[in-house]
Simulated scan of single mutants.
Amino acid sequence: MTEVPAGRPLTVLLLAGQREGRVDPLAEATGVTLKAMVPVAGCPMLLHALTTLAKTPTVGRIVVSINAGSGIESLPEVAALIRDGRLDIRDARPNLVDSVFFALEGQEFPVLITTADNVLLTPATVREIDGAARARGADVAVALARREDVLAAHPDGQRRFYRFGCGYYSNCNSYWIGARSALAPAELFRTGGQFVKHPSRVIGALGVAGLFELVRFRFGLGTLEQGCARLSKRFGLDIRPVVVSDGATAIDVDAERSLKVAEEVIARRRAATDETASRRAPAAA
């Protein structure tokens, strides 16, 4: 169990790197080099997550792991965060896990690790994940969303879900780590993660135990809490699920379909914000 000192800010690692030599189809289709720079609703993908993190009161330092020479420091929003001492940029390594360890050298924990394509992340959800993980004394917390909440956010929001005895869930690409010693489960992602798309990676990461996890997963045996309890035993850490309220958190931008979905959700949110502002305007006057 991790005991985080009260009031300690949350560090956030934003993973925005891309494998060298790989051409991302979405980046290519929109005329940019890196997926993190793909325009989403009028601005680079990366800026959606950065803006959210900068607006979250409990977030202290932000670390961006991205390919060398990305040029993101020339973006005004990025330059402002650097001047304020809130943002570090670290060169991504060839492997996802190595990128995580390199980016977190010298950083203070707890840390929330998330991805640049998580454009629908909100300050409320960041605080929800952080608050739940601290309250439960977790070493590691994994954010997930219920299928019904994801589909309520957008009917085409996600097509793949993890099946458990208690329901269907989608990964939100957000992981809370309480202390540096709790980084061991990061090795699960050395082969790339995306276990719904590539179930064999579970076996590669967990050995024989992974085979049993695949059987449980295939037949929906056991609850979400029970699955995390087994992982906790495997790694000797307290690994907890955090089921977030906002199903849109599970909608990441990885193709033209999900890009369109994300932009529709963003447009709906902006319209709701404008409507709220217009209702308050007469009272303020």
Rank of each mutant, 00 (worst) to 15 (best):
L50S: 04
G227A: 13
F235H: 08
S170W: 01
F109Q: 01
G178Q: 09
E213H: 11
D24H: 14
M1Q: 13
A80F: 04
V265T: 01
S99Y: 08
D24Y: 04
R234L: 14
T51M: 10
S181A: 15
G157F: 04
R280A: 14
D91E: 15
R127A: 15
L50P: 07
E105Q: 13
R270K: 14
L81G: 00
A138Y: 10
V100N: 09
E263T: 09
V253P: 06
Y175F: 15
V100G: 08
L47V: 12
K197N: 12
L151K: 05
N95A: 12
P123A: 06
I203P: 00
S174F: 01
R269N: 10
R190L: 13
A229S: 15
R134Y: 07
E28N: 06
R234A: 11
D88W: 02
S200H: 13
L81T: 02
T30R: 13
K233D: 02
V23K: 12
S170P: 07
G227N: 14
G69S: 03
V119L: 01
A205R: 04
A6I: 11
L87V: 03
E187K: 12
L104N: 07
L259G: 01
K35R: 15
D98L: 03
D246Q: 13
V32R: 04
R93K: 14
G7H: 03
I72P: 00
L10M: 11
L237D: 05
E275Y: 07
A54P: 03
I266A: 15
L46E: 03
L259D: 05
D252G: 13
D24G: 04
G60H: 01
D139H: 13
R134L: 02
A49L: 05
L81V: 01
T33M: 07
G192W: 08
L26S: 10
V78S: 06
D24R: 11
S74R: 15
C172S: 02
L53Y: 07
A277H: 05
E28K: 14
V38F: 12
T276I: 09
L112R: 07
E148I: 06
F219I: 04
L183C: 10
L224Y: 05
V242N: 03
V244W: 05
S174H: 02
Q107D: 08
L206P: 04
D130L: 03
L211H: 10
